[in-house]
């Protein structure tokens, strides 16, 4: 469904953030993108919906080459890609409802959005999504009154109301505590399953990635160095991605946690 062909990004400074990345994601697959800071995880995600312009290669979504689109066509395609951000990126001075409804901006005209007159079907869907993530009672609160986990839930609603085929998720748990992080990851994965969505999740927490996804991609210096199932992440692989470190502890904690989860 999503296919990257030799996707390349070279910044003006000469830094090569992505080196000819090839990747294929079938419908409904949730994959995690791991790698050290600066490996190009964020750039990869942003090159797909072109918040960052790729300098070479192609990205196909369905039958459309995203990298070749003009502004107008790009906006239409962006509606099919929901994005969830690190640090939530909610518009803080707007209400929760406005933030959720802003996911429909690609579908409604300027004046309707100016007057906040969204179609009733959009409003109903927003209510349903907020109910699904347990925030219906917060609908008219301002986004900056919410806690971190609550904000990220609103961010998820904003991405889902676009009715996307693909979710691009950039470090969804970066500023959350461990418990909330898991809840958010679980929510994302559940929602993807419910709606048969593909998702690319950038994440630096390897253990968390292993817990929730079916496929892991390891990125190092703009290249894919690992592609496989979560349990194939051996210390050797992690060393290749991140460099020398004692990896046994990381992997062990995951197993223990899984046992805990199993007994609970």
């Amino acid at each position: 469904m999503l296919r990257l062909e030799k996707l390349t990004k070279t910044y003006k400074t000469g830094d090569q953030a992505l080196k000819q990345v090839d990747l294929e994601v079938p419908q409904g697959q949730v994959l995690a993108l791991i790698g050290p800071s600066g490996a190009g995880k964020s750039t990869l995600i942003r090159c797909i919906n072109r918040l960052v312009e790729p300098t070479g290669g192609a990205a196909w979504l369905g039958g459309v080459n995203l990298t070749a689109l003009g502004q107008r066509a790009l906006r239409r395609e962006r509606r099919r890609m929901g994005m969830i951000f690190q640090e939530y990126a909610l518009v803080e001075r707007l209400t929760v409802m406005e933030n959720v409804l802003s996911g429909r901006l690609g579908y409604v005209g300027f004046w309707r959005s100016f007057l906040r007159r969204f179609p009733q079907s959009d409003v109903d869907e927003a209510y349903r999504l907020l109910d699904r993530v347990g925030l219906l009672h917060m609908a008219d609160k301002r986004a900056d009154e919410l806690s971190g986990g609550q904000r990220q839930r609103v961010g998820i609603c904003r991405a889902l109301i676009q009715n996307p085929a693909l979710l691009l998720v950039d470090e969804p748990t970066a500023s959350l505590d461990p418990k909330t992080s898991r809840q958010i990851m679980r929510l994302i994965v559940e929602l993807c399953r419910e709606r048969d969505l593909a998702a690319i999740i950038n994440i630096h927490d390897v253990a968390l990635a292993q817990m929730f996804v079916m496929r892991v991609i390891g990125l190092e210096l703009g290249r894919i160095v690992f592609d496989g199932a979560p349990d194939a992440l051996t210390p050797d692989v992690l060393t290749q991605i991140y460099g020398e470190e004692d990896w046994e502890a990381t992997i062990q904690t995951v197993e223990e946690e899984e046992e805990e989860a199993g007994t609970a």
Binding site: N49, L51, R75, R76, E77, R78, R79, M81, G82, M83, F85, Q86, E87, A89, L90, V91, E92, S102, G103, R104, L105, G106, Y107, S113, G155, R158, Q162, L168
Partner: peptide, 11 residues
Amino acid sequence: TQVEAIAATGA
């Protein structure tokens, strides 16, 4: 980032 988030919805 708030601007980016809105742009990413296809606005």
